[in-house]
Design a binder for these strands. Structure first.
Lengths: 192, 192
DNA sequence: TTGATTGTCTAGCGATGCTAGAATCGAGGT
DNA sequence: ACCTCGATTCTAGCATCGCTAGACAATCAA
């Protein structure tokens, strides 16, 4: 019995190692550099080992995305908690979101740009993703405005943040004005 | 002299054929299916011919993106022209933008999701891209609000639309509520 | 008609994601 | 201590990718 338990523990450790290594490699050199060969080399196992943990590269991306979603939820809630009043809270939330995207570009890509084979906006959506959305909603429902569905408002606010995050990082929007854009977005969207 | 002119004409025709074929193939089966082999087969030339027109696959994507930007600019201006008053104009503009993204998903990806090797938000940004942004700005500057830089406002509005477009298409936002989200966005962002 | 230039194609390189089948390891019984 | 057998891991290879060198063919000037 103990032997099997140790095996399962080692297996779980190795799975964490794979996800962690994929994430580091992606942040260092971009997702294009995360090949099954390089990844297997870094974890010091052969390629087929990857496929005994994940169906393929997509699932590895998905695993990184879930890890990222959990972290993002924590950071969003921390930022909201540290702020006083609705206005400061929404501003802090927006900054925290964009900050996360800037500091973890590869993880953000795994979550929203790449195909990680994850379901969204439906029943079988993984819990971490639902929770990250919930973290946004918690701080936004108080500024949704009368007669506006908080869920719908959160979707719009999230989409706007997502647009800013992706376009900025892709060089489509000049970075220096990022803060002014954030302020404008918060001022207009939130009902204070 | 005439011989060379015919040659250049044929060459330009073939280049258009490449771009058009890449675009059709991408819309039919996604950009992953647009391989140099499949593309060369469809245009009935060998692979190296592609490289006598474009540096590589990236530039082909870029060419599709520029074509798309030009079309989008036309559609945005048409929608704005057909509307009466600032409110209707902004709503029509937003619908036209999201509509373009829905009807031409592969082209939209070429423009904003994939790496087409194009410069953005700087001097050497290709004209069609600047013009598409200008088309947005023309209709949005009148609703930017006092003391708000129209360019900055357009960037924010654009980012929000981009977020809605990409998240909806990726299955991250439920499609049925698309119109309600658009309305909410216009109502809040635009100063009417 | 010849020679040179231009254009196109065949064939192949290194790299990718993924997998079949061989090789190895280790736990449990004798 | 040794064998057996199942589970685990690896070697080797497939098909496909973007891209390119060098052979071949077509076209022009002389």
């Amino acid at each position: 019995m103990s032997v099997q338990e140790r095996r399962e523990r080692e297996r779980a450790d190795r799975e964490r190692l794979i996800v962690q290594t994929a994430r580091e490699l992606a942040e260092q050199q971009g997702w294009d550099a995360v090949t099954t060969r390089r990844l297997s080399e870094r974890i010091e196992y052969s390629q087929p080992v990857l496929y005994s943990h994940f169906r393929g590269k997509r699932e590895i991306i998905g695993a990184v995305a879930l890890q990222g979603a959990a972290e993002m939820a924590v950071e969003l809630r921390a930022a909201a908690r540290a702020a006083d009043g609705p206005r400061d809270r929404v501003t802090a939330l927006a900054r925290a979101y964009l900050d996360f995207a800037t500091r973890n570009p590869a993880v953000y890509d795994a979550m929203f740009q790449l195909d990680g084979g994850l379901a969204f906006a439906q029943e079988d959506t993984p819990e971490p993703l639902k929770d990250a959305f919930a973290a946004l909603l918690e701080s936004l429902e108080e500024v949704a405005g009368d007669g506006v569905d908080p869920g719908l408002f959160t979707e719009v606010f999230w989409a706007a943040l997502h647009g800013l995050a992706t376009l900025t990082r892709a060089g489509r929007l000049p970075p220096p004005d990022a803060e002014r854009r954030t302020q404008l977005l918060v001022d207009r969207l939130a009902v204070l």
